[in-house]
Structures are given as structure tokens and as C-alpha cells.
Amino acid sequence: MNYSQIWESFCFALRYVPTTLILLFVPLAFCIIFGVIIAVIRLWKVPVISKILQVLLTIFKGIPIYLLLVAANLLYVLYFDKFAAWLGISARVANSNIIHLAIFLITICFLPGISEIIRGGLLSVNKGQYEAGAAAGLTKLQTLRRIIFPQVIPEIIPSLSGTMMSMLKASALAYCLGVTDILNASIRVATKSYDFLEGYIAAALIYWGLSIIIEGVMSLVNRKVSRYQKKLTA
């Protein structure tokens, strides 16, 4: 085992932590925004749209993220130029930024899960809270924003924390798109001396650290926002 190679990979890969964080937080933001919209549409049982969404979500839930990334990457490389030419735009694969594709795909993969979590959170709020909001003269949106969401957030933070860790780990798969994230950087250095194992160990250590930090921060947040649920200890 080449320990100095682990160290070298580790130091080099640390510089690409921001890329991995982008691959985590940008899709997360998109997922939450669209997840809320989808969850509310399904909660209010908006005709047709909510049915279509349900079918789409079931389909996307079934596709492995690795398959989606590999397939999308190939199609992208093979057909993007032709497609762009057909559309009459001058963009070409060679000068496009692959990280956008990675962000899009990770969003697609986690959207079903996150919208489901949010829907579960919305359903967990007692029906009486909606009625009390209505009876107090609040509009539907006011009730959602001021009464329901503040109660949903602490409810979903534990699941969201788990999903964030899954997203962090899934972002490593962006290596097969050629995005230079932690994993790719770590391997690239190690490959020069054929020390693959060392490269993977270094990457694993960084991801492990990030996971522990995310879990810690989220449990802190959880304690902050769920203050109101605590009973007084008599």
C-alpha cells in the first residue's frame, strides 16, 4: 500500500469539494422547489395533472441513477451536435459544460423521492390546522405558507437529511459524465502510478467526512426547528 499516494490524492481531491457540493446543493434546491409544487398539486388533487405526475414519478422512481447517467451521457455525446444543428443553435458538445447535465440528471433522479417526502409531511399535518387557518380568514396560500409549511419542515428534516446523504453519494456517479468532482480528481492523480486503490481510499475518506458533517448539521437544524413540538418537562 502506497500511503503517500493516499495523501497526495486526498489533498488534490479536497480542492474539488466545491464541485461536489454544487452537485449536491443545486439539485437539492431544484428538487425542493419542484417537489413542493408537485406535492401541493397532488395534495389538492388537481385533476389530470396530479394523475400524470403520479405516473411520471413512478416511472422515474424505477430508473437507476447510474443507468440514467451513463445513457444520458452517451446520447449527449453522440447526438447533441446533430440536435443542436437541427435546432439551428451553435452550441456544440466540445464547448458545453457537462456539469449542467449532471445537475439536471441528479435533480430528475431525486425529485420523486423528495416530492414524496414533502407530500408525506403535508399529510402528517392535522386536518384541523387547515380548517383553523381557513376559519381564521387566511387564504389557502397564506395557510400553507404560515401554518402548514412551518410544521412540515421539522417533520421532514430527518428524511431530508437521509436524502441529502444519498444525493452526496450519488453525485460521485457524475464521474462517469467526466465531471471533475472529488472522486474523479482523486482517481486522476492515483492513475498516474496505477495506485487505484489508494485513490479510492482517499475519495472515500473525503465523502465520509462530508457525510458526517451533513448529518451533524441537519440534526442541529432539526433540534432548532422542532422546538415547538417539545412538551414541558414538569
Binding site: Y200, W208, G209, S211
Partner: peptide, 22 residues
């Protein structure tokens, strides 16, 4: 458990693939 939960499965796969023979 913390290590397995905290690291990407693809890395675990490669760790076993390269590490186990060694």
C-alpha cells in the same frame, strides 16, 4: 456502519474490487 453509510457505493465497489485481492 458510519463508513458504509457515508461513502458512495461505487467507491465501495472499487475498494472491494481492488482491495480484496490485495
Amino acid at each position: 456502519v458510519s463508513f458504509i453509510r457515508g461513502t458512495p457505493q461505487i467507491i465501495q465497489l472499487f475498494l472491494v474490487y481492488y482491495g480484496m485481492p490485495l
